[in-house]
Design a protein around this nucleic acid. Structure first.
Ligand SMILES: [Mn+2]
Ligand SMILES: [Mn+2]
Ligand SMILES: [Zn+2]
Ligand SMILES: [Zn+2]
Lengths: 140, 140
DNA sequence: TGCTAATTGAGAATCATTATTATTTAATAC
DNA sequence: GTATTAAATAATAATGATTCTCAATTAGCA
């Protein structure tokens, strides 16, 4: 694990964006959170650190972080967005019952992506691979 | 190309659901439409055939068709849902600028899915593979 | 040809997200 | 350090895609 701050600060500088406590805190929160939280979850959790932050700022910040490419926004089937700081090529395993999301990574995926992106060609700007499977809690 | 009606009617019977003109028309429309239309697009296009249909019925019908597995709902990044009658394993190539969606299918994808679903194991209920790439119209 | 539960149509309600705007603040220059 | 200023934030209102409600209609069946 590395200090996420340095990377974020460098990218913000490069893009001419300000380094704010809100941006640092939300990015740090996501970088240490595997659960692909919703904006609402980020808001309620981040209030411990930044008690006066507003929902609007959370949405705006998440959108900014997605724009600069350090997180990914995933619209899921319950109508909400979930936020993922894992920017490597991977599979999101989504429980169709409770919308729990976990990452699955393997060599198979890496190889597939190399082959597929070459096959499709052109300027590909991203990808999203989801697999729907009941989580261990829900299958009981 | 085969008659989509027969398949749908048989599944509706199996599930104890009624065969209605609205369900037939919307399913037929999607089966003959590669463009992954939104609910709004389905609504405005289907009014030619069913002038008195309501938006609510379109939403409800699309949801029913997705429930019984004959179409797939894709929430995309503009906040809308798009509907796909291609239920085979494939990649949706989505233009991040105009949200145009086209299907990409290849042996690479089929083989990957066989391998990946075995790797992940358990009762997988579906999958979704998206690739973001500017469409030919937008890259000009 | 009726019966009945499912479906539809019309319109209201919901709710996640976005927009607005006054206030605050990070970054730069002095 | 202090002033300047454009960007960011907080509070709140607005939006809009989707869902809900319920009375009217209809598909499926006896
Ligand atoms: Mn993920
Ligand atoms: Mn498709
Ligand atoms: Zn679950
Ligand atoms: Zn395009």
């Amino acid at each position: 694990m590395h200090q996420p701050d340095e990377e974020l600060v460098s990218i913000l500088h490069k893009k001419g964006l300000k380094v704010t406590p809100q941006r640092l805190a939300i990015f740090r929160y996501l970088a240490n959170n595997e659960s692909h939280p919703s904006a609402e979850k980020v808001y309620s959790d981040i209030k411990g650190e930044l008690p006066t932050i507003s929902q609007g700022t959370v949405y705006k910040t998440l959108s900014t972080l997605a724009d600069i490419g350090v997180i990914t926004e995933l619209k899921i089937n319950n109508g909400q967005s979930r936020y993922d700081s894992n920017t490597s090529v991977h599979v999101n395993v989504i429980c169709p019952r409770c919308n729990n999301i976990t990452d699955y990574q393997s060599e198979t995926i890496i190889k597939f992506w190399k082959k597929l992106s070459k096959e499709i060609g052109g300027k590909i700007s991203g990808q999203r691979f989801d697999v729907y499977k009941e989580c261990s809690t829900c299958e009981k």
